[in-house]
Write a protein that binds this DNA or RNA. Sequence first.
DNA 1: TATGCCAATGCAACAATGTTGCAAAATATT
DNA 2: AATATTTTGCAACATTGTTGCATTGGCATA
Lengths: 139, 139
Amino acid sequence: MMYSIVETLKKNQLSITDSRKKILELFVRSKGALAHADIEHESGTEFDRVTIYRTLQTFVEKGIIHTIPTADNSVRYALCKDACAGGHHHDDHVHFMCDDCGTTYCLDNISVPKLSLPDGFTISQTDVVVSGKCRKCRS
Amino acid sequence: MMYSIVETLKKNQLSITDSRKKILELFVRSKGALAHADIEHESGTEFDRVTIYRTLQTFVEKGIIHTIPTADNSVRYALCKDACAGGHHHDDHVHFMCDDCGTTYCLDNISVPKLSLPDGFTISQTDVVVSGKCRKCRS
DNA sequence: TATGCCAATGCAACAATGTTGCAAAATATT
DNA sequence: AATATTTTGCAACATTGTTGCATTGGCATA
């Protein structure tokens, strides 16, 4: 069962504001991951750039969205699975980034393999980013 | 067998310049990965910022260094294994980034697991970034 | 080793991205 | 409805990355 945008914000003890509603809605509607620039572009001049930065920061802290590591220079964010069901979770899924169109997908079905590191290293998180061509861009 | 800095540059058909020698030397001496800012800091005011950007770009194109994906906002570069032996190679190893000190290690011994993606996706590259505490920072 | 070509550098100017402090406005609380 | 708290927008600034162009320096050739 899905919670609404507003309920998600409430669950995370965040004030209900226009920017938060709109930005969270963008994530819900978007299939892929979003970069700051995408959001700024989609929401037009409605919100200040700073507001978007701070909103993203807040969402990350609350576990509503998570960052995706990329080899190019862009930070991308994606909804945490079950974020709208109120649960935090570890980001144990694989990300796919299309070389052509740049779209980033969360491949929720593929779990990150367990790795054994050298002695002395402890693991807090494992990110897997696969690059290649997505369904739409292979010709 | 290791080639010298100069020989590595020659092998890649690059002119031998002060900046290239110095920057490549930094990578050889460094255990971990370097960000642009690290290099700018280490080399002082000796080289222009633009020169460092262009040198890194060139090294990446020649396969001497590779970028490491990160979830924070920094692009990091590391020597390609065997770069000084003249061989290109696929980046099929795991990267580790310490949450505390930020040092990034190439774990050359751990190979990236093969993944099977959904139909329609083709893989060109797989990056694995593990976060946690490194040997030095675990207390 | 001197000459000339081509590649690389430095500079300047600019664009994009991210951060901070603070007053004003919106939201939540009573 | 009044007050307290949070969030926003603005301004100013810092960092990061890019581009064009004149100058410098490396390298091949004679």
